[in-house]
Amino acid sequence: MHPGKASPILEVEGLTLSFGGIKALTDVGFEVAPGSITTVIGPNGAGKTSLFNTISGFYKPSTGRIRFQGEDITATRPPERARLGLARSFQNIALFRGMTVLDNIKLGRHAHLRTNVLDALFYFGRARHEEMKLRQEVEERIIDFLEIDHIRHMPVSVLSYGLQKRVEMARALAMRPKVLMLDEPVAGMNREETEDMARFILDVREEWGVTVLMVEHDMGMVMDLSDHVVVLNFGQVIADGTPAEVQANPEVIKAYLGSGDVSELRQRLHQPLAVGA
């Protein structure tokens, strides 16, 4: 699966974002090929999360365009972007703590349901029908898939960090995403949890045909999983290509290490990740 052949599902073009006088992003542009796993990497403060927030519609870029499936969505409101199929998870888990795992996941489907207030108050006809169908689909496609059936009725606030990340991914999958944006899906996880998550990301792409765009710091995972890597530094794209191309790029090495000993980074970049795929 190599990017570049089919027309891109997501295109970012000349994106500039500033807060007051500080430029968080400068003329950022890249493409995400359908069915690919594209990863944005970069040192802390490089603008990765700002980029994600701009793509999902939190921030308005001062210049530039975002195209999703060929359509310009730069001026589209966040809820509408969600309905179009742009789903995301957050770096500091943004689950709804007052709800159970099941309700959190169901919430992801919100934009695709039709129940109105009257249906809801009486819970007849459409509301019940829709809820039952949703429940079945959530159980059989998402909860089974992510292996979280044992916690479905628990409030999310009691779950471990790794499980919360998994529930957040489940919620994003319930959104019927075409592009799944994951902001540091394995940050703070141990080796085993990281490997599980890597497996889920690969399976999502294979089984659901979902395109994945992620921000990640775990270089082993990035290099193993990604088809395409975009490197940001100080809000600018400094490299863009396959993992091998990016690893060999002197600019990237400089951004990560300053100028100095390169062999240590090489070693880190080549560290294998045992994934069953």
Binding site: R81, A94, H110, D119
Partner: peptide, 23 residues
């Protein structure tokens, strides 16, 4: 028990991410 009630709770718990989830 429906999407409307869930949307209300989502707004209470974290309104910004509720918006990104399509509410």
């Amino acid at each position: 028990r429906t999407r409307i009630g869930r949307a209300f709770i989502a707004i209470r718990d974290r309104d910004i991410s509720a918006e990104v989830l399509g509410i």
